[in-house]
């Protein structure tokens, strides 16, 4: 009940965008822009694009996931909302679990939709598109979990947003390696490993982030 209320509030804030800092559309536009620029940079050789395009989609997705990082935890911490939830006996872990789900809903599915456009721009065939979409489905929840954890860890720090982006990248390497690896011929195992890495991140994230938020109180 309260989890659903938290989720609804988080979604409303993340989708609309807070304080004019873009909503869910900004990461998607960024994602499409990156995939659109890639053919300009490497040339329009269809074979090259088809071979590398799926990897570009992954890189673009990773960068797009970093964009909303500073809006995930910091504003609520500043406004004192976490203290209010703590007074009501709502664990930080519960709040962060709702936040991860809301964050994923606001960037995962939109990104997978935008991948359709990206696939057309990069000349991916149907099989490649399906592999990328499956990989994103497996990998983006993990990206959301890592993003929220890092946002909680860097909340309250000056320049936390820039630092957060830097910290997410190495943590996202397993997702990227397995996710993009699943695109190679015979790489179905990569998909499973990507999903496993994603699940591990999801399992750890609320607890790591919750501990970080509690440590800030002292």
């Amino acid at each position: 009940m309260r989890f659903a209320q938290l989720l609804r509030r988080d979604l409303a804030l993340l989708l609309r965008g807070a304080q004019g800092r873009g909503g869910a559309t900004l990461p998607v536009l960024f994602f499409v822009a990156v995939t659109m620029l890639f053919p300009f940079a490497v040339g329009s050789d269809a074979r090259l694009l088809a071979r590398t395009g799926a990897g570009v989609v992954w890189i673009a997705a990773l960068l797009a996931a970093i964009l909303p990082l500073d809006r995930l935890v910091e504003p609520d911490l500043e406004a004192g909302l976490f203290d209010q939830w703590a007074l009501r006996g709502i664990a930080e872990e519960t709040v962060l679990a709702a936040r991860i789900l809301a964050h994923w809903l606001s960037f995962g599915p939109p990104l997978m939709l935008a991948t359709l456009a990206a696939a057309a721009l990069l000349g991916l065939d149907a099989a490649q598109l399906a592999a990328v979409e499956l990989g994103l489905l497996a990998g983006t929840p993990g990206l959301a979990a890592i993003g929220v954890t890092i946002a909680a860890l860097t909340a309250g720090l000056r320049g936390g947003a820039a630092l957060g982006g830097l910290l997410v990248l190495p943590l996202a390497v397993p997702l990227l390696v397995f996710g993009a690896g699943s695109l190679q011929p015979g790489g179905e195992g990569g998909l499973a490993l990507c999903a496993a890495a994603s699940l591990a991140a999801l399992a750890i994230a609320p607890f790591a982030g919750g501990a970080a938020l509690r440590a800030l109180r002292e």
Partner: peptide
């Protein structure tokens, strides 16, 4: 009994 806290932060969503 339950506790209600008012401090220097309003704990209200600024954009809403």
């Amino acid at each position: 009994g339950a506790v209600a806290l008012l401090d220097e932060r309003p704990a209200l969503d600024l954009p809403m």
